[in-house]
Design a protein around this nucleic acid. Sequence first.
RNA 1: GGAGGCAUAGCUCAGCUGGUUAGAGCGCAUGCUUCACACGCAUGAGGUCACAGGUUCGAGUCCUGUUGUCUCCACCA
Length: 882
Amino acid sequence: MARELPKIYEPQQVEERIYKMWEEGGYFKPAGQPDSKPFTIVMPPPNVTGQLHMGHAMDATLQDTLIRFKRMQGYDALWVPGVDHAGIATQIKVEEELRVKEGLTRYDLGREKFLERVWDWKQKYGNRIVEQQKKLGASCDWDRAAFTMDETCSKAVREVFVSLYEKGLIYKGSRIINWCPNCVTALSDAEVEYVDKPGHLWHIRYPLADGSGEVVVATTRPETMLGDTGVCVNPNDERYQHIIGKKVILPLVNKEIPIVADDYAEMEFGTGCVKMTPAHDPNDFEVGLRHNLEVIRVLDDNGKVNELGGKYYGMDRYDARKQIVADLEAGGYLVKIDDHAHNVGTCYRCHKDVEPIISAQWFVKMKPLAKEAIRVVKDGETKFVPERFTKTYMNWMENVRDWCISRQLWWGHQIPAWTCADCGHITVSREDATVCEHCGSQNITREEDVLDTWFSSALWPFETLGWPNTDAEDYKRFYPTDVLVTGYDIIFFWVSRMIFSGCEHTGKAPFHTVLIHGLVRDNQGRKMSKSLGNGIDPLEMIGKYGCDALRMNMVTGNSPGNDMRFYVERTEAMRNFANKLWNASRYVMMNLSEDAKNELPDLSKLEIADKWVLSKLNTLIEEVTENMDKYELGVAVQKIYDFVWDIYCDWYIEMTKARLFSDDADRKQTAISVLTYVLDQMLRLLHPFMPFITEEIWQSIPHEGEALIVAQWPVARTDLAFKTECDQMESVMAAIRAIRNRRTEMNVPPSKKAALFVLTSKPQVFTEGEGFLQRLAYADTVSMLTAEPENLDGMVTITTADAKLYIPMGQLVDVAKELARITKELEAAKKFLSSLEGKLSNEKFISRAPEAVVNAEREKAAKHRDLIAQLEQSLAAMQRLA
RNA sequence: GGAGGCAUAGCUCAGCUGGUUAGAGCGCAUGCUUCACACGCAUGAGGUCACAGGUUCGAGUCCUGUUGUCUCCACCA
């Protein structure tokens, strides 16, 4: 049956249909075989506001490749997808829409109405990212898709909050936190990015209250002086011993504040005197606690000077800075201004400067939680791939500070705490409280704040499986999960928090392996970003080159933890590869009979080329499986790529042509059977990486079973390894390569066939390889010789380790050139042999190197001795001719 | 201040626990309308694996140092 198939693979015609087939077939669900082991991956939930970008493509490709591999290996494979409510990002987006379309703020609507709008928005756009992930071929169980704001997740969040509170691991307190005046919320330490910015160091004169002199303080944030409540010097600083305990008059504010002595002040820096602003600096806050300094907050939530700021009231922090500096100068208080670069904290969402501000917030006490999270990684219960990220994680976990979890937003999990107006007691409860648990008053109000988005995603590996219901089927079957795949940029945000949460609430580390990948950058190595406009849309690449090509781009030439640059050319190359595979399959299909089956013939019918390709396949299966098990996906896929293109297409297919176009039905059948068998095995190996094209082809060749996605992963077979025949085949291949090489050098066109004479100690090998020599080495006749030809005039001599090949080329042969070439080859061979002999005569090498290595070297040496002998003969013959 | 990555062909990168005459893609050169494929075939050019030491029978691979480069964490006002 000759099938009509397009010469070019058209992914657009295939992907949607295949994906639908998989989904309808229910293949994304765990097969649920009772005797199979579960294998679980939870997907890092993309933001509900998200648009698919290359980072997602990378993430999804790796996870999908792993889950497909495990599924084919017979695991009960589950990949749980989901979406994150993304507190700040989503709220900002909806607020923006509200402002543009209706000219309203969230306050105009009120909390309840506003949240309705957000849910509407989620209803409308929340599925977009999911649809986009499907375009990547993601084989998640979509029926299990979770959302961090849905009922089970909310229940989990509530349970965790209350239980941590009951254990004393959540508390509310006034601390210096990172405040984003633009997003108008507190941030955790992890959400602050430090950026080097040029700034100034202002030196300001603070007169002593008793008129006996002055001190000069240095600051990078002069506007905070409005909240100064002290000046600090080092207790060992001899310059200032006499003023400790005295007071200074705070310029502009005209208020007396004390001078205290504390180790915090460094004698070497600036003047050695530091102004203390306990409400706006974490260190000053600490000093303030030790010395009972007043805490005066002078900036409001929007970063403007508040009513305590006197004449500066209402000014933006940076305007106030300018004005204060001007006023200081006018008043004669400004001593000097130095340039001073320093690190400024910025908001990871909006990138505006973060303001340290004292504020009453909720915190998770981290030290006790970190303990177990450190242990599981230290003990290897959870491993990072690559291993070096263990150190990053440990370093963070060992120095972690309490986690500020409250956010002044509306979109998120509202904190389940009620404050009593009568007795001040805080009631924290799993059910919504109606009365104060302490005094019974009904005069209680709920905390307005919501929880950090990451508080809910920290529970992701178990909340998605039904926790806190520990009897939930999924939880029992699939928790703990197996591998977590994510980028190194969210180890702190997410991975570490999942680990301590899992340990604390489920008693188990949530996964045994964390596979870390790098960032996808543009072709100049820059981060892809909206502001630079250098992002490449994965969907556009899929539309143009196909999903499989994009996925291949994501895994080839890439190793765990390392960034990669995105080159469209690479996607194109992978598209070409897909096409190569497509055409190889076309070749097979065109030669298949109607009733063809995919089964190997009786092994006795196998010919040398069949044995060679089957042996190669065997090695491939072994190696690829091993690489996959070690998460070396890039190495694995490279090997498959090489096999498909080089072994199968460039060699094996060519080797089968003589048989396929011959009249010998039996030999033809053997060839087509092996072609089909090897193709099937290749498709299986390649399927996790290129799911669409492999499934499409597989469905068109003889197969058993419903779909490739659930077909068995190949296993190497000892009965299909043929070492001897493999070597023999390669002898012939070496001859073919050598002949092609020579002909090209001599500019002989392929159309010009020539006779070939072979002198070899393995005549049966070359006799068997006659067809290959004819077809692939442009020989019109092949004859075996028993001795060197009498007349070498006009004869090209080609030497390999196993044979000498003679081709009459008449006028084309230049004896002098031949001599030069043979001499060159001889020298190279001798040089190499002498290095081998040096090694082999080294007693230490023989005694200490493993036997296999020594034997391999011996074999190589023997081969080169043969080659040298052959070359020497040829040389002598040529010299006689010259 | 602390920690880590990277440095291999013109470009982008693989190279797993040390053992091939160091690989791939793209690019380059030459030839090819060969009955699957020009999104192709064949052949080729191109690398003292940053530098200097060390360990080893053997180092691109391990150790130390140097240089360049990138990143993360912490932070002195």
